[in-house]
Amino acid sequence: MSSTMRTRRTLGSLAATAVLTAGLLGASGVQAPQASAAACSGTTGVTVVVDFTALGGGIETGCAVGDPASGLAALTGAGFPYAFHPRFPGFVCKINALPTTCTNPTGTAYWSYWHAQHGGAWSYSNLGAGGYNPAPGEVEGWSFGAGAQPGITAP
């Protein structure tokens, strides 16, 4: 898939997420954070990298502007909607509707969660994304498969 097609797909996902988020939060008057299809600059937010390679896709990057309260908030703030596994609450089963079906998590088929500093090495998270509070300037990573880190250096 070309870089242009990936960017368009990412921007389409961001637009759909923005519409959904606005609809969900509009009644409360709370505004959703803006998402960007590129890495955050400095400490303007939390950069999120999602590696879809094992699912036949590429690697996508987004920016959750501001200071998201959790790794899950960073994920959605960067334009990546997610779904929990129906039988394992709190366990992320899909990101951007991938994989297409939720299977029981195994050692070879799950979304692994990572942290890094810009340009630094990935570190496997020993906390779930709902319990981790990333600081602006940090990079969050997600990779589907057997627990391998995202396939790029943290941007």
Rank of each mutant, 00 (worst) to 15 (best):
F52R: 03
T53H: 09
L55N: 05
G56Q: 10
G56E: 10
G56K: 12
G58F: 05
I59V: 14
I59D: 05
I59K: 09
E60T: 11
T61C: 12
G62S: 10
G62N: 02
C63I: 09
C63M: 12
A64W: 01
V65C: 08
G66M: 02
D67G: 12
P68V: 02
P68L: 03
A69F: 13
A73G: 05
L75S: 02
G77C: 05
G77E: 03
G77V: 00
A78Y: 03
P81W: 07
R87Q: 15
F88Y: 14
P89W: 05
P89H: 11
P89Y: 05
P89C: 11
G90L: 10
V92H: 04
V92K: 01
K94W: 06
I95D: 00
N96T: 11
A97T: 12
L98V: 02
L98C: 06
P99I: 05
P99L: 05
T100N: 07
C102S: 06
N104K: 11
P105C: 02
T106C: 12
T106Y: 08
G107P: 04
T108K: 14
A109D: 06
Y110W: 06
S112N: 09
W114E: 00
W114H: 02
H115E: 09
A116Y: 00
A116I: 00
Q117W: 07
G120Y: 06
A121N: 14
A121Y: 09
W122K: 01
S123F: 00
N126E: 13
A129E: 01
G130S: 15
G130K: 15
Y132N: 14
P134A: 13
